[in-house]
Design a protein around this nucleic acid. Structure first.
Lengths: 254, 254
DNA sequence: TAGTGGTCTAGACCACTTG
DNA sequence: AAGTGGTCTAGACCACTAA
């Protein structure tokens, strides 16, 4: 018996037509079925190919646009951009483990600490939560070629996430949260700065006499806007790289 | 005589209904007319208020969502996020001058160089353009409290931009390009790294014995996808800060 | 169950590009 | 003039939330 779409996609994440079409065209661009510099089929053409309405095609194209795959031009068409040169999207919300997997970098995670504590005072202030809030404090060192180049310090609210097994912390927190707990991650605010190294950095990381370190801080929220995580990720200067695709939001008003 | 919308908006940038509605609601959020944590009126309600169709309201809300103003929740409504804490959008494509204006920081720009040259070899390779390409080389130092903390090196293709008066370079290149030349900036790819300081950095900037510097490189394209600018912006470590709003694109496929 | 947002449609008109 | 993308509509059905 043939399963209906709904049955087949039970528990899946996105089953909308426009998202499916987005994924198909994305693959075709990564495949080079559609080559950089060329035009995609017109919206009317895609409407016929996929047998959907034009607005549905347009939603799919909007996703491609936002993710830097195409540029649209009125009267002309949708031009495929050169996506090969920046084929790993470090931008957006992506965890360390996901990055490693997508880039196949030989690396290793060492779990240094995983315990429940009161939230550190300065973090409570930053997040504007009570100082009596309890959090899982998870500290992990990321090794590359036997050197610790990244130190991740995560604080996860126990009110949202009850338990964190060591095995999960050694693998991927986001995988655990999304796939095992079934929570949906929504958005985050990130801040990048460069700061003097701390005594802890010197103790836990393989710093070659560096005096500074790149620090990224973020507060991560679920889709229902509940705050659940504060992250501080400390990167050795020579191993830090951040790539972003940015679209002009229209001329600013001066 | 009353002017029609089209006449009134001659040469303006966006006159679509959904964009107007976006701007109005954005102001209302910044005004605190809609307060953080509260719900916006429902889509049906907004449909009546603005006398437009629901899809038009939804386009406006999508803009608010992407810019971090709201979070939508099916069955619930659109929740206004706390936007005050991060009220300057460093993310996206924003020029130095625009940032200064929006933050009212007392600062000064010194034009060090503005001349037409052949494109430097390493940049030609990076951009995959011919080494015989001619560019405006614009080098500017950004002073803050009498210290040079940022060094901007811009290379603009003469094939797209014929002339750059010194006065414009001292003000804002983006303002000149968009408002005086009428070109439309589309998108850019940015890369952030930390690198050892060069002899030029030492000569032109007020470095206090720092050994490293934050470097952001980007290639900027027009809306019609033409490449027109390569930028290298060098920031003193203690003056660098980058803030980003990121939305999870849905669980990654492991 | 009523109200919310999420998706989708079929059609319309407009602005822009190219021949 | 023909084809492209940009905007907008009115209506439909679905999935989720809260009472």
């Amino acid at each position: 018996m043939v399963k209906s779409d709904k049955e087949r996609n039970k528990g899946m994440d996105k089953v909308s037509k426009f998202h499916e079409i987005f994924l198909e065209i994305e693959s075709a661009i990564l495949n080079q079925t559609y080559k950089s510099g060329e035009l995609l089929p017109s919206e009317n053409e895609l409407t016929k190919q996929y047998n959907v309405s034009r607005e549905t095609i347009r939603k799919a194209l909007t996703l491609l646009l936002e993710n830097g795959y195409i540029q649209k031009k009125q009267g002309k068409g949708s031009i495929v951009l050169d996506v090969k040169r920046f084929n790993f999207p470090i931008s957006g919300l992506t965890s360390y483990k996901e990055l490693q997997d997508s880039q196949n970098i030989g690396s290793q995670t060492i779990l240094i600490e995983n315990k429940i504590t009161l939230i550190p005072k300065h973090i409570a202030e930053f997040l504007k939560v009570s100082e009596t809030t309890k959090v899982h404090t998870v500290i992990r060192a990321r090794k590359l070629n036997d050197e610790v180049v990244i130190l991740d310090k995560d604080y996860l609210l126990t009110s949202v996430i009850e338990e964190i097994p060591d095995e999960e912390a050694e693998n991927s927190l986001y995988y655990y949260i999304e796939h095992k707990l079934g929570l949906k991650i929504g958005y985050a605010r990130k801040e990048f700065t460069v700061e003097p190294v701390t005594e802890e950095d010197r103790r836990l990381m393989s710093l070659h006499g560096d005096h500074h370190i790149v620090v990224t801080r973020s507060d991560v929220h679920l889709e229902d806007t509940r705050l659940f995580q504060y992250t501080e990720s400390r990167h050795r200067l020579d191993k830090f790289r951040f790539v972003d695709f940015a679209r002009r939001r229209g001329p600013q008003t001066y």
